[in-house]
């Protein structure tokens, strides 16, 4: 399993469009991919848009990305790149 701490830095947090992008990316892999809030341990399956929205991750939220499965190496890199890339956008 691979883990990494990520801070949500974009202005509106994980809002609908961002969540949709995460789901689309995560769904390309067979690995289990989760985001977990560090403050309250709420956990979301990155293939579930509703789960991601229910995280309520606004700007500044600290999340742990967790990837586990056969293609975890590729999935982890792709997800990390996506999530860190988000920070630059609004």
């Amino acid at each position: 399993m691979k883990r990494k701490k990520i801070v949500v830095e974009n202005k509106y947090g994980i809002h609908a469009r961002v969540a949709a992008a995460i789901v689309k990316e995560a769904s390309k892999f067979s690995s289990k991919i989760y985001l977990e809030r560090e403050d309250n341990n709420l956990r979301a399956n990155c293939k579930s848009i509703l789960g991601l929205l229910a995280l309520g991750a606004s700007k500044g939220t600290v999340l742990n990305l967790e990837v586990e499965g056969e293609d975890e190496e590729r999935a982890f890199n792709a997800m990390r790149e996506l999530l860190e890339g988000l920070s630059k956008d609004a």
Partner: peptide
């Protein structure tokens, strides 16, 4: 769950 989120925009 989403109504309980602590962010007006996300709610």
């Amino acid at each position: 769950k989403i109504l309980n989120v602590n962010d007006k925009y996300l709610r």
